[in-house]
């Protein structure tokens, strides 16, 4: 078992390294640079800027410099915010993004899973139709529409919460809804269908025949199996939500890191792109890893030794 974890760990590091490398070369291969402006910078000044940020070094030298930084957790200076390091951007923004993301994740688990189970248990009854309809809406309405409508009605027309930022506890509600909307609905549907499938299994019938209480049948036996696909889906989703959403963070004016994923590409802010990409990749890899561990806890049939052997 330990062997397996060690091997996974090394694989993970290699994955992250690969992502950093691919991102580095892809970004440098597209035209334009961090100093491309509405008013183009004259060549002499461009030279001075490139020299200052070592962009005039051969690409391979820049790459190794970058790797050196990466290993020592120094992600370099941002090009679009003069004098600010990528480390600083992430240290300032990530806690905010992660907090909103975590709240969204909690909302998904606390609402999505129970809704799915209730829906499955009351299949083809009114409550099932309501949940299924709500979940379909949630999956189809894009987050920016949700966010814009929320700001227009709840913050604007009703004046219940501030329009932007995270000034009061109430400010978190909008971003949470917009961020979790899709995944929440998806989890509800996933839980429902997987629950329905499990409920038809023989061992559930056996459990019921043995006279177990319904709560025990569902809670102890059915849930464990029904949740496996949900856990599989949630792992990467948590990584995605906790590293933020470009759209949601922009619309609600949240000073997190979600916006950097798109902004930095537009600005050719090389260091920020790789910084946030590596952060997301590391998070993602970690979550996938965690999901594997969770499998073993939820379902004892899954054994690492088997895979490893």
């Amino acid at each position: 078992m330990r062997n397996y974890f060690l091997r996974r760990f090394i694989y993970s590091l290699f994955t992250i390294f690969l992502i950093a490398t691919v991102t580095f070369f892809m970004m440098h291969s597209i035209p334009g640079g961090p100093f491309t402006r509405e008013r183009p910078v004259p060549p002499e000044i461009m030279r001075a800027l490139n020299a200052k940020y070592h962009l005039d070094d051969p690409l391979i030298v820049q790459y190794f410099d970058y790797l050196k930084g990466l290993v020592t957790f120094d992600l370099g200076p941002s090009f679009s915010k003069i004098g600010v390091s990528v480390n600083k951007l992430i240290i300032t923004g990530f806690p905010i993004t992660a907090k909103v993301g975590l709240l969204a994740v909690i909302l998904i688990i606390v609402l999505g899973v129970p809704f799915g189970i209730i829906s499955a248990l009351r299949q083809n009854r009114p409550i099932d139709y309501i949940v299924t309809f709500g979940a379909t809406l949630g999956v189809t309405i894009p987050s920016f529409v949700m966010a814009t409508l929320y700001i227009f009605f709840i913050a604007g027309k009703l004046g219940l919460v501030p329009t932007f930022g995270l000034k009061t506890p109430g400010s978190y509600i909008g971003p949470m809804i917009a961020l979790s909307g899709y995944s929440l609905s998806f989890v509800a549907r996933l839980t429902r269908s997987s629950m329905l499938e499990v409920l038809r299994q023989d061992y559930i019938r056996t459990a019921r025949a043995n006279g177990l209480k319904e709560l025990a049948v569902i809670g102890k036996h059915a849930m464990k199996n029904a949740l496996i696909p949900v856990v599989t889906y949630l792992g990467p989703t948590i990584a995605a939500l906790m590293t933020g959403s470009f759209v949601v963070e922009r619309i609600f004016a949240i000073p997190g890191i979600g916006r950097y994923f798109v902004e930095s590409v537009t600005n050719r802010d090389y260091t920020v792109i790789i910084g946030v990409t590596v952060l997301y990749a590391a998070f993602y890899v970690f979550m996938v890893y965690l999901v594997d561990v969770l499998y073993a806890i939820i379902d004892p049939r899954i054994k690492f030794e088997k895979e490893a052997g």
Binding site: I151, A155, G156, P162, T163, I251, F252, A253
Partner: peptide
């Protein structure tokens, strides 16, 4: 000074007196 680059959000806040 706020740094909001989504004009519709800022406009809503303006209408709210923020």
């Amino acid at each position: 000074v706020a740094f909001i680059d989504v004009a519709s959000t800022a406009y809503q806040a303006y209408k709210n007196g923020e």
